[in-house]
Amino acid sequence: MFRFSKPALAQAIFLAAALAAASPARALDDFGLGRAATPDEVKAWDIDVRPDFAGLPKGSGTVSDGETVWEGKCAVCHGTFGESNKVFSPLIGGVTKDDVKSGHVAALKRPDYPGRTTFMKVATVSTLFDYIRRAMPWNAPKSLSNDQVYAVLAYMLNLSEIVPDDFVLNEQTIRDVQKMMPNRNGMIYDHAMWPSTAFSGKKVKPDTHAKVCMKNCKDKVEVASSLPEYALSSHGNIADQNRHVGQVRGQTTGPSAADSAAKKHPAAELADTSGCLACHAVDTKLVGPSYKDVAEKYKGQDVSGLLFKKIREGGEGAWGDVAMPPMTDIKDDDLKTLVAWILKGAPSK
């Protein structure tokens, strides 16, 4: 048996105590990972605004200031009056003075009413402030000042005939606006699609009650709708979208992909894969100008170098206030191909 001499034992006990003090046993759920967020960090990211206006920053904006912001940064996608559905669904329209009184948009009850605008649906004005501040303009999110957000929202409220032309929206008046929101009473919560009673206040059962029936479950089969013949080809050649081996094949509903690809201009494919078509189209103005318009503008001029630079480095001014973001990921050769193609008017073949 090994025995400690007295001094050695004392030393061992001392060492053990010292080790214990230096590294106390750590609980396994005390991970020691991450660090405290600084108040400035929380402030930078915590920009959400709730329906009760918790989180709403101070600021103000007039309808006319909002119109300036709108025309410079918003109208290009949403239309002069917020009515456009060219890029996104319409924002403005479909609400009446009566809706402002009742708080429920009457047009929503009409199955024949074409489309639903943002103002027909939204119940909470905080939603609009929060979203414009965090995500708009679409290609330059979070670039508006708080005053600009107030102003542009004031302009939208004015377009919707909720507030007068001389209205000033600020962190106080926005509370009055909430009481005038045309669809403020338009939301219901008595459904089973939230996992608790937090909204409904009571347990709600699912709204359909189908049963498992196995034999002679009905007298006849009523086909209410089928795909019209012409719509078969609306999604291209289905044969190309199925495997060419197995228990089934896809139906031939159009020219094969191989044929179409052979006919498509390689630069058109390049524009697609490079992400250009998110903002540009060949014939119509989207967020940016159409390629036809660009070709028309520079007709007869040698601007290949200029256009190359503009696409590579981005810029603004030539086609309104919406900036062209720099396109740094496209290879030089590909960009040259694209420039030549655009200046030719972006031919499809």
């Binding site: 959400d48 709730r50 329906p51 009760d52 918790a54 429920h104 948009v105 009457a106 929503l108 009850k109 009409r110 199955p111 639903r116 943002t118 649906k121 939204v122 119940a123 909470t124 905080s126 939603t127 609009l128 929060d130 979203y131 995500a135 669809n183 338009g186 939301m187 219901i188 919560y189 459904h191 699609m193 939230w194 937090a198 909204f199």
Partner: peptide
């Protein structure tokens, strides 16, 4: 409290026949 963000106050709300929207 819930936040009623854009994608739970303008979109992803279910329109019912009476013109009310189910939210959340």
């Amino acid at each position: 409290k819930p936040w009623a963000t854009k994608d739970e106050a303008v979109h992803y709300i279910d329109l019912m026949p009476d013109g009310q929207h189910r939210q959340y």
